[in-house]
Design a protein around this nucleic acid. Structure first.
Ligand SMILES: [Zn+2]
Ligand SMILES: [Zn+2]
Ligand SMILES: [Zn+2]
Ligand SMILES: [Zn+2]
Lengths: 158, 158
DNA sequence: TTGACATAGGTTATACTATAACACTATATA
DNA sequence: TATATAGTGTTATAGTATAACCTATGTCAA
């Protein structure tokens, strides 16, 4: 079995289901899932690697006139605020959320060899961190957990 | 009791003990704790808030001629490589390590109100994350855990 | 229907963060 | 002292993010 589980998967379906889920979610919440926001989400889902804002912007520039940094960042802000993507802090890059329906903290395994990223979402870890913080008199709001290392596919190849 | 424990503490002693510890550590490991590196560590310890590289650089510029970004970044790199400071990824800023002797992962509570930061270093959390990652076939190397929220001092004040 | 308001996006400029590359100096050690 | 290595000076540039102001579009009440 593979960590990140990217071998042999139908990635076109991957993208489509992410966008469909976003569509449904925005409809439910009364959010405007505009063509730009939809397109940015699609671009982020092109692969399971984090995408930099300026990589994204290069794509956008080739598709629409006058795309500039705010074009990308505003869409990214919208997608993040609504839990459709996550920001990988240690990489200054963005990745699609695999389960935007349920609220959860940011937990990632990041392979330093192939640069692919897997989202964890382990509620037990989330709770333990929360408990620890509260026990220290701190009111936790947001958790960011990023683990770098080697995914099993890359470990085998070595 | 206060989360971050910053009320009524002798901060001058705080700085001195951090620098002394670094001195000892470098001596033990045969590292060159140069005047620049020492000064940068002192500047980072001026407060318990993360310090940006360019804030640091502004200080350095006022103290030595020709200080430029590499002046700051090289010292920061040295201090990070040797566990004397940590980088707070979500803030692009740096903070002194409270126990550079023992190897450990990066775990922080970050108050969004007063911007002070407390280092956790909870081995149980470290282990749980490690176990989870390994269980997924991933070989973890580095963990970054950043929890934002409100420290108790700020919670009271509200 | 229309006007007032709010949201989204266009456009230009700028701020903030980090590294590349090469020259020169200090230190270690043989 | 000769040699190698590590540290720093210096200049330039790359990469990331936001401010500010304007225009277009959608929403909704009068
Ligand atoms: Zn997610
Ligand atoms: Zn990999
Ligand atoms: Zn530490
Ligand atoms: Zn606080």
């Amino acid at each position: 079995m593979s960590t990140l589980g990217f071998e042999r998967h139908n990635h076109a379906r991957c993208i489509r289901s992410a966008v469909d889920a976003a569509d449904a979610l925005c409809a439910t919440r009364g959010l405007r899932f505009t063509p730009l926001r939809r397109r940015v989400l699609e671009l982020i889902w092109q692969c399971h690697r984090p995408v930099g804002a300026y990589d994204l912007l290069d794509q956008l520039k080739s598709e629409r006139d006058g795309a500039a940094p705010p074009t990308a960042y505003r869409a990214l802000d919208f997608l993040m605020e609504n839990g459709l993507i996550h920001r990988i802090e240690s990489l200054n890059a963005f990745v699609g959320c695999t389960h935007p329906d349920a609220p959860h903290q940011s937990q990632f395994l990041i392979c330093t060899s192939c640069h692919r990223v897997a989202e964890l979402s382990d509620p037990a870890i989330e709770r333990q961190i929360d408990t620890k913080a509260s026990g220290a008199g701190f009111q936790p709001e947001r958790q960011t957990l990023e683990v770098t290392g080697t995914c099993d596919a890359c470990a085998v190849t070595r």
